[in-house]
Design a protein around this nucleic acid. Sequence first.
DNA 1: CTGCGTGCAAATGGTTTGCACTACG
DNA 2: CGTAGTGCAAACCATTTGCACGCAG
Lengths: 141, 141
Amino acid sequence: MKSKSNHIIENLKDKGLKVTPQRIAVLVAIQHLKSHPTTEKIIEYIKKGYPNIAVGTVYKVLDTLVENNLVKRVKTEKDIMRYDGVTEHHHHIYCTESERIEDYYDEELDSLLSRYFSKKGIRGFEIEEIKIHIKGKYRQT
Amino acid sequence: MKSKSNHIIENLKDKGLKVTPQRIAVLVAIQHLKSHPTTEKIIEYIKKGYPNIAVGTVYKVLDTLVENNLVKRVKTEKDIMRYDGVTEHHHHIYCTESERIEDYYDEELDSLLSRYFSKKGIRGFEIEEIKIHIKGKYRQT
DNA sequence: CTGCGTGCAAATGGTTTGCACTACG
DNA sequence: CGTAGTGCAAACCATTTGCACGCAG
């Protein structure tokens, strides 16, 4: 917990952002919840240890964090926003039966794709990032 | 236009949905607008030729169409919904400088991916669909 | 100190809902 | 004809905003 907070504090400082308990709380919440939480879930979690935080503040903090790439917004077909605390490149697995969204890391796939697109390219378009959305069902093994 | 409407009517009938002018108007609008329009854009377009349509009706029609796979919701990092009238499998190119979202078809890529995943798989997960999100910038040629 | 960040509460705006009415099949 | 679909307007609810206060740098 200490080391996590330190890491978080560094990240904020590196971006020239003021280090406030609210920002730390939001980052800790996202890391702890892991499951690409909604703003609601984040607020719910934070309120346990910090009942006075304002809802508006959480939204503002999230905006700031997204602008500074400390957190990402997750693409969804719903109109409720979800967040991702993992900043390294990764893909997402969407379960069609639940709200679950899992991370998917695959370097082999990444290099396959980057090879494919560096050869093929897209006319008039400069590719910055390629993310895969895998849709399907989890089955009990 | 005639042929388009006929095609649309068939699609509705095939799903066992009643064929109403409102549903036709929504489908025509999405096809005509092409650019993965927001609900607002769809309503704006329909009102030109059909000023009395109710906003609520358009939302209900869109829900019905999505449920019946005649239209898809487009994943976005914004909380405003966008729609896609193309039901064949395709990918999306997101421009980071504008709101543009373009379709991307690539059978070679599709078979590459399906080969890759049929070999590799994901433990405990049954893949239904793989979609690629390509993020970057359009450059003037 | 000095302004960025927060708390609070009201406002916004896309989307949903309930109900009486209409028209598709 | 009977019911699925529509129009309308009020309700909803996630998110935004404005402003006074407080704390990080």
